[in-house]
């Protein structure tokens, strides 16, 4: 196998690894949201997906409106700091344009499902659901009795997505992937999934990764595809690369309320464009420059040279 066999274009990676009917986890907690990958899933008109995400936000609104989803598994649903996801709400409240099944947890509940999946356990114990209405509406939130103390705990089953898509700052051609800033559940969802697509701001030499192994969150051994897509998390952010585009989140509130405006948005920014490069061109240099932060470097650490 050639050294760079895992390096694919976004079109190739989605065509090869995301199938109709799959359970697809698109993670990134406010940080590193895989918009470029989600747009390609819309463009390739995947259908009947079970979409999994701790915090469904603009990207999920777009995926649901575009008709890719049958079911949504989540912990918190909204446009953070702004308001509602109206496309998701239309589906849940009125079956418009089609019904959407929902499977709902707390953040921690869904995190525990990832952890069980990643660790090869059938379930994960936690506290926090007792006394709430969640066990009543979600049959997968159950109770388990501790064999040591007799305490009754909550339990959730393992989740093993067919595919996890993770955006990150950088990876080498093997897929060894480094993330800094908010880590979300990127590592957990990657280990839980059967197939992993990593999308990065830049593909770097192996030596860059190996000079700082503590920063590697996802090992190449579990990665199926590495896609280079600079700016691929916009309008969310990539720590050190670009800021969150808060104006875009505010503007979304007007678009999401109006199905016709959402159609136009998808036409203009997804179907009408071939890839993320074209998206950034359309976004324009001014926006890209406005979002670039001034540098703030960490002090280097000394791993030592042991021979």
């Amino acid at each position: 196998m050639a050294d760079d066999a895992r390096i694919l274009t976004m079109r190739e990676a989605v065509a090869r690894f995301v199938r109709d009917g799959d359970t697809v986890a698109l993670e990134g907690f406010t940080h590193l949201i895989p918009f470029a990958a989600g747009h390609e899933i819309i463009r390739q008109r995947r259908r009947d997906l079970t979409l999994v995400r701790l915090t469904p936000d603009l990207l999920m609104d777009q995926l649901v409106h575009a008709g890719t989803a049958r079911r949504l598994v989540f912990g918190w649903l909204g446009n953070p700091g702004v308001g509602s996801l109206h496309a998701v709400r239309r589906a849940v409240e009125r079956d418009v344009p089609a019904p959407l099944e929902i499977e709902e947890y707390s953040h921690f509940g869904l995190l525990c499902r990832y952890q069980a999946g990643a660790s090869g356990l059938p379930f994960f114990p936690l506290r926090g659901f007792r006394g709430t209405d969640y066990p009543r509406v979600n049959p997968l939130v159950r109770e388990v009795t501790c064999p040591f103390t007799g305490e009754v705990l909550d339990a959730v089953p393992a989740l093993r997505p067919d595919v996890a898509v993770v955006h990150a700052q950088r990876a080498d051609s093997e897929g060894n992937t480094q993330i800094w800033g908010l880590l979300g559940a990127q590592r957990e969802v990657a280990f839980a999934a059967r197939r992993v697509i990593v999308v990065v701001e830049e593909i770097v030499e192996e030596a860059v990764i190996r000079a700082d192994p503590n920063r590697t969150q996802i090992p190449g051994a579990i990665v199926d595809a590495v896609v280079e897509a600079p700016g691929g998390a916009h309008p969310s952010f990539a720590q050190g690369f670009y800021d969150r585009d808060n104006a875009a989140y505010l503007a979304w509130d007007r678009i999401t309320r109006d199905p016709a405006a959402l159609d136009r948005y998808l036409e203009e920014w997804v179907y009408g464009l071939p890839d993320r490069g074209a998206y950034l061109e359309r976004l324009g240099r001014d926006v890209v420059n406005r979002l670039r932060p001034a540098p703030r470097l960490a002090s280097p650490v000394d791993y030592g040279d042991y021979r």
Binding site: T55, L77, V88, E104, Y105
Partner: peptide, 16 residues
């Protein structure tokens, strides 16, 4: 719950 008048964001970290 299955047919809410208004669907709100949900739990997030609040229960914990």
């Amino acid at each position: 719950y299955r047919r809410p008048r208004v669907r709100l964001p949900g739990a997030g970290g609040a229960p914990d």
